[in-house]
Amino acid sequence: MSEKVVLHYFDGRGKMESIRWLLAVAGVEFEEVFLTKREHYEKLVNEGALMFQQVPMVEIDGMKLVQSRAILNYIAGKYNLYGKDLKERALIDMYAEGIGDLTDLISMYFLSPPENKQKSLSNIEEKAKERFLPVFEKGLANSHFLVGNQLTRADVHLLEASLMLQELFPTILSTFPKVQAFQERMKALPKISKFLQPGSARKPPPDEALIKVAKEVLSHAFK
């Protein structure tokens, strides 16, 4: 059984980016197989590697894991990023689901047609400032971490999401000092600092070329 962790997805963010982040913070080295043609995807389906005919897919510990939440839960549990008990895990899950809602909004911006982009941007900014960031600011009021007294997947997801927000709105954290301070602490951690350096597996925001490839590979999902 191979110990190598292999990620199967596009050469872009999407649903795999949070998985890359979590593996990097856990100190796990991984390889990536990028889907660039429809045949690559069909081969995985025909091999029975995709339970629901969807990617991302991660080969780890002799398994072919699909469904991004299941993958993230497994990695977090395996590498002690999932709290100390069930109560902490429930809080982590709530934060993770909320952060996922926020990052989904951001992802949809890149998929929206040009005439809808400004409206999408305004929607993201409004919801970030009124619904999401106040929750994280409150959660960090008396602790360096969102849950408990150690780093968890919730913290990793928040860092990723806050950096994505700043790509669209550079000053958006100016009225959220706790989140700002949290971000600086997280960026100083050696494994995170390494992942933020040029040449790492971290992906840039999606562009039209990547979106075109994804639509061609997963043509069934866009019909």
Results as ranks from 00 to 15, higher is better:
156 V>W: 00
91 L>D: 10
82 Y>S: 10
31 E>L: 07
98 G>L: 08
29 E>R: 10
106 I>A: 06
157 H>Y: 15
34 F>Y: 15
58 V>E: 02
55 V>K: 00
102 L>I: 04
151 L>A: 07
85 D>Q: 04
96 A>G: 07
16 M>Q: 07
142 N>L: 06
117 K>Q: 14
137 E>K: 08
125 E>C: 11
91 L>N: 10
99 I>C: 04
127 K>P: 06
14 G>D: 01
41 Y>R: 08
147 V>K: 01
83 G>A: 09
115 E>M: 04
84 K>V: 10
86 L>N: 14
54 Q>T: 10
107 S>F: 11
58 V>Y: 05
61 D>E: 14
62 G>V: 08
71 I>N: 04
97 E>N: 12
62 G>W: 09
24 A>Q: 08
142 N>E: 14
115 E>S: 12
134 P>T: 08
23 L>C: 01
88 E>C: 03
63 M>N: 13
92 I>H: 00
14 G>L: 02
68 S>N: 11
153 R>E: 13
143 S>E: 04
95 Y>R: 04
128 A>S: 14
27 G>A: 06
143 S>F: 03
137 E>S: 07
104 D>Y: 11
49 A>Q: 15
64 K>D: 02
132 F>R: 06
36 T>V: 13
91 L>R: 12
117 K>D: 04
69 R>I: 13
38 R>N: 10
113 P>E: 10
122 S>A: 15
153 R>F: 11
72 L>R: 09
27 G>W: 07
79 Y>Q: 03
49 A>Y: 14
12 G>D: 01
134 P>S: 08
57 M>S: 09
56 P>S: 08
37 K>M: 10
129 K>Q: 15
148 G>L: 06
27 G>E: 06
107 S>M: 12
92 I>N: 00
83 G>K: 02
129 K>M: 11
115 E>V: 11
35 L>Q: 02
78 K>S: 12
103 T>Q: 12
57 M>K: 08
93 D>L: 09
128 A>V: 09
109 Y>F: 15
103 T>R: 13
57 M>E: 03
74 Y>G: 04
61 D>F: 03
117 K>N: 06
115 E>R: 09
61 D>W: 03
79 Y>W: 09
20 R>E: 02
44 L>C: 05
69 R>A: 15
138 K>Q: 14
47 E>G: 06
77 G>M: 08
130 E>R: 14
121 L>A: 11
110 F>K: 02
146 L>R: 01
103 T>W: 05
114 P>M: 05
118 Q>F: 09
87 K>W: 14
51 M>N: 11
138 K>D: 13
38 R>D: 09
64 K>Q: 13
